[in-house]
Simulated assay, not measured.
Amino acid sequence: MKSIIRNDWSKAEIREIYHKPIFDLMYEAQSIHREFHKSSEVQVCTLLSVKTGGCKEDCSYCSQSAKYTTNVKPQKLMPTDEVLQKAKQAKENGSTRFCMGAAWREARDNRDFDRVLDMVSEINGMGMEVCATLGLLNEEQAQKLKEAGLYAYNHNIDTSREYYDKVITTRTFDDRIETIKNAQKAKISVCSGGIIGLGETEEDRISMLFTLSNLPEHPESVPVNALVAIEGTPMEGNDRVPVWDMIRMISTARILMPKAMVRLSAGRNEMPVSEQALCFMAGANSIFAGDELLTTPNPAEDKDKAMFDLLNLVPRPAYKGAAADKFEQVPEKV
């Protein structure tokens, strides 16, 4: 019997799923995963910080906030040709999605935004799925990104509505939701997940999944991040997230949002292959490749290639999946 895609989950239902015995939870998640995805395919994404540091936000986990003293040095928007070269290298290394991150509170209608639009257009022409994370977006900006060829927009909700103001005070949870809605109105695929290890409770994690799974349209990608505690931020002393917490989050996300790409994101550098394998068994089918995730360490590409060989995993082709029919695949430029 095929699973039904639902957008009306209750917190009680999610709580029951989340707290199932771990092997029962993983088995259910893996079964649903195989209904909607090829079990050996993993989407390989590359994330590049195209504008680093100096952000006005006070996100308590982030090394790029101007409010904290960290080892991140603010940098202006990268030259377009450098970004395009990075995208080309990413494609050669097997990535099918290229995500550009800019440490802005919100996108502004200026030369830098116009340059990002040019980058989106050029990378789209390479035949890669182009993703961006530029902070808050209005409807007009979302439409411009769509017209430039943007495939996905990343805007994580980070944590639960109830815990949000304990992590960030410079914008609201509803600001986050509004940007997601603006991207979806423009027919841009949404990438939205969160972070665990921020000091939240299990109930906060359940509430975060409740918000994501009850959006009118599920996110196409759901990143599950384990906090990387960074010196100089208010959360520098937080404990490492146990792998079993990641597995519960990934499994529950897979059951609630069967079609989504569930991405094993930040924190992977601290996980041995055995722990990552358990996360893939739990329903994860996407990773970030490359030595760095914005400003935090990530496994080297040769290690990921060795892991793929060991686990018989293969990169997922670009533009594959339920969202593919919304986008015109652009042939690679010769």
Rank of each mutant, 00 (worst) to 15 (best):
Q64L: 14
E82P: 00
A87S: 06
E122Y: 13
S121L: 01
N138E: 09
K56V: 08
G54H: 08
A142N: 06
N156D: 15
D118K: 04
I177H: 05
S65Q: 05
V167L: 11
L77G: 06
L150D: 08
G127H: 07
G149L: 07
D109G: 14
T169G: 14
L136R: 06
Q143C: 12
L84T: 13
G101M: 14
P74M: 04
K56C: 11
H155P: 15
A103M: 13
Q89H: 15
A142D: 06
V120L: 01
C62G: 01
N71V: 03
D158I: 15
K73Q: 09
S121T: 11
I168C: 15
E147P: 00
G53I: 13
M78C: 09
A152I: 06
L136P: 06
A142H: 05
L84I: 14
S121P: 02
R176S: 12
G149T: 14
Y164D: 06
K76Y: 08
N154I: 11
S121V: 07
N124D: 07
F98A: 01
T172Q: 06
G127Y: 03
L145F: 09
E92T: 12
E162W: 14
M128S: 02
S95F: 03
T133M: 05
A186R: 03
A142K: 01
A142E: 02
M100K: 07
V83H: 01
E147H: 12
N124L: 04
K181F: 10
